[in-house]
């Protein structure tokens, strides 16, 4: 069997596909939409460009050394080439890159130094994110698994953990920062344009570490204020008969022991706050789309979707009960 040139080209193109695909999309660090992400973005391109130039140079020199005319080969084997290309050049290039990196990364600076008038506290859980905003009246507003940011306004993130070490990483907004039990790490972030991006826990934190993601929703200031005012309010009353029945089931089966729905007697703090869960971008910390089917699946099958998470499986519901319960949760917008 003979392979033509076309085959080789296609193979190279195919193998590059996953790499190219990960360069765009909601979780790519190459589409910066935050002040810090924009600041560190050139570092990648500069390092990549320098790396590429050095590689090209080496390839050309190797080719010349193997196949070039005798005069070139003689020059290449000289001491001057060894000392210049093997010692002096790397020292200059690497020192330059290192210094540039330190400057861009603002080494030694405190990432939470900047003054802000808004603070969000994010706590790493097993395996989800508790997100607490400051409401319009200064009261804490509990939410989960999603970070909303006003565009063009610096926001202080206080990062905590009450279990193991997690790492908060929203690639389009800023670099990583660890969440360490017993201390609070702070970083000031600022979104530069309205967009939805995705973040991920970046420090191995147990079996379901890879299943611990979140969405970042950057929105215009006015929109953000309206959203926060709504988020701070109590849950909406169910409008449909099915959702009302779902709320009864919610309480009959003890869901409120772990979950809070403000405006009702459900005051649990073990699992995520569900007051406005229906308005979030995802369920189960970025794992599922947010719709009634996903709620139903999670309630019954959560131990398969996110193994060893703290929620027991609730397999006791009839189909009608389950869809009513899912309809209620879905209605909590």
């Amino acid at each position: 069997m003979r392979f033509g040139k076309g085959w080789v080209f296609r193979a190279i193109a195919l193998s590059a596909l996953p790499g190219i695909a990960s360069c765009s999309g909601v979780q790519s660090a190459l589409s910066p939409r935050g002040v810090e992400a924009l600041r560190i973005d050139p570092l990648f391109w500069t390092s990549a460009a320098v790396g590429l130039a050095v590689t090209l140079m080496v390839v050309i020199l190797v080719a010349a050394a193997l196949y070039g005319p005798p005069r070139w080969r003689e020059r290449l084997s000289g001491d001057r080439m060894l000392i210049g290309g093997g010692i002096v050049l790397p020292i200059i290039v690497l020192t330059g890159l290192f210094t540039y990196g330190l400057l861009v990364m603002q080494a030694g600076a405190v990432r939470g130094e900047q003054e802000t008038d808004a603070t969000v506290t994010i706590t790493g859980k097993l395996w989800w994110w508790e997100v607490v905003y400051e409401g319009p009246d200064g009261k804490a507003v509990l939410s989960a698994n999603e970070l909303r940011l006003p565009v063009g306004r610096p926001v202080r993130l206080r990062l905590e953990s009450d279990n193991v070490i997690h790492s908060f990483w929203a690639p389009q907004i800023a670099g990583k920062l660890d969440m360490i039990p017993g201390r609070t790490n702070e970083v000031v972030v600022e979104a530069t344009e309205p967009a939805v991006s995705r973040g991920q826990c970046a420090e191995y934190c147990g079996g379901a570490h890879a299943l611990m993601a979140f969405y970042v929703v950057a929105m215009a200031q006015a929109e953000y204020d309206a959203w926060l005012a709504r988020e701070a309010g109590p849950a909406v009353e169910p409008v449909s008969e099915e959702a009302a029945r779902g709320r009864e089931i919610f309480f009959e089966h003890g869901c409120g022991a772990c979950h809070q729905v403000r405006g009702t007697e459900a005051r649990g703090v073990i699992g995520p706050d569900l007051t406005h869960v229906g308005s979030r971008k995802s369920l189960a910390a970025g794992m599922m789309s947010n719709d009634a089917q996903a709620f139903a699946r999670w309630i019954v099958d959560n131990q398969h979707i996110k193994p060893e998470n703290k929620m027991p499986p609730f397999g006791q519901f009839s189909e009608e009960e389950l869809s009513a319960l899912a309809a209620y949760l879905d209605s909590l917008e």
Binding site: E252, H253, G254, G256, G268, I270
Partner: peptide, 23 residues
């Protein structure tokens, strides 16, 4: 009230008044 730091929910949320007849 349960035990927050141990992730223990309040027993009565399921075993108290007005809950499922199966509990």
């Amino acid at each position: 009230n349960g035990v927050r730091e141990d992730d223990v929910p309040a027993c009565l949320a399921c075993h108290g008044e007005g809950t499922s007849a199966q509990f």
